[in-house]
Structures are given as structure tokens and as C-alpha cells.
């Protein structure tokens, strides 16, 4: 799995779409209102799913097992047996501590979730003004 992070509007999804040739149907945009489709190739706005977990009192999914990397650019997602290939998450935890207690808890849970995802990811890439920088491996 590749984890893609960085600030809002920095070109994270553009990067993933271009790198993996993702079709629109392969991208699942997470919301706070429903569970994500973990069989999707790419999950974006993972931080919104983290907010959902916070409200439900559940632990965000960070370990999908197996090896989701693509050999020679060919990926096998038949039957959704594998976890996502790409997870995209905004680094919402860099700003000032919010006054709102829920946003405070969300901010911390996002930090811990990203750290756990990064440990389980084969590759971690950070986007800065549209430019990717691979920070793992």
C-alpha cells in the first residue's frame, strides 16, 4: 500500500491518479457518514473516515495485511481480497490546536492513524505544492 499525505489542495489525488492510472470508479471518497469501501483501489480523504471512527468509538483500520504493491505496474484486485493500493489522507494535524474538543480529538487520532498507516505502507509520499517527495522507504 502507498500512503499519500500532505496539506489540502496540494495535488495528492492528481499524483495517485497519474501514477497508477486510476479510473474514477476505482477511487472511493471517504465521508463521515458511511463506512468506506475497503475493496476500492484508492481511498481518499481518509481523515473523514477517522472522524467517523472517532464518533463511533471504533479504531480506524490501519493494517490491511498482505502485499498490495503492484508488480511491474500490474495490480490484481480481483474479488477485493486485498486492501487498498493507495490511501490518501490530509495532514490536518499541523495547525493550531482547535478550541473545539471534537476537532482536538480528531486531530490527535488523525496523527496516530497516519503514523500507523505509514508503518504498514510500503511507500509513503508527501505532496508539497504539487511536487511529490517519497519519505519512505
Amino acid at each position: 500500500m502507498e500512503l499519500v499525505t500532505g496539506g489540502a489542495f496540494q495535488g495528492k489525488l492528481d499524483y495517485a491518479v497519474k501514477k497508477y492510472g486510476l479510473a474514477e470508479t476505482e477511487i472511493f471518497e471517504c465521508t463521515e457518514d458511511a463506512d468506506p469501501d475497503f475493496s476500492a483501489v484508492c481511498l481518499t480523504h481518509y481523515e473523514r473516515y477517522v472522524m467517523r471512527c472517532l464518533r463511533n468509538g471504533t479504531a480506524p483500520q490501519t493494517d490491511f495485511g498482505g502485499d498490495q504493491s503492484c508488480a511491474d505496474g500490474v495490480c490484481d484486485f480481483s474479488g477485493g481480497a486485498h486492501g487498498p493500493l493507495v490511501i490518501i489522507m490530509d495532514d490536518i494535524f499541523c495547525g493550531v490546536v482547535p478550541a473545539d474538543p471534537e476537532l482536538r480529538a480528531w486531530r490527535e487520532l488523525c496523527g496516530r492513524t497516519l503514523t500507523a498507516l505509514a508503518q504498514n505502507a510500503e511507500e509513503v509520499t508527501r505532496l508539497f505544492c504539487g511536487i511529490p517527495k517519497t519519505i519512505k522507504p
Binding site: G7, A8, F93, C94, G95, V96
Partner: peptide, 20 residues
């Protein structure tokens, strides 16, 4: 200015998008 947890109003998000 893209990495905070505050939920900004429409104008602020429009500004962030334009600056990005």
C-alpha cells in the same frame, strides 16, 4: 496554510484553493 484541523468557512476554503 493547508494543514490545519479547523473547519473554515466557504470564503477561507476558496482562498486556500486559489492560493494552492
Amino acid at each position: 496554510i493547508y494543514s490545519g484541523a479547523e473547519r473554515y468557512s466557504g470564503y477561507t476554503v476558496e482562498y486556500q484553493k486559489a492560493l494552492a
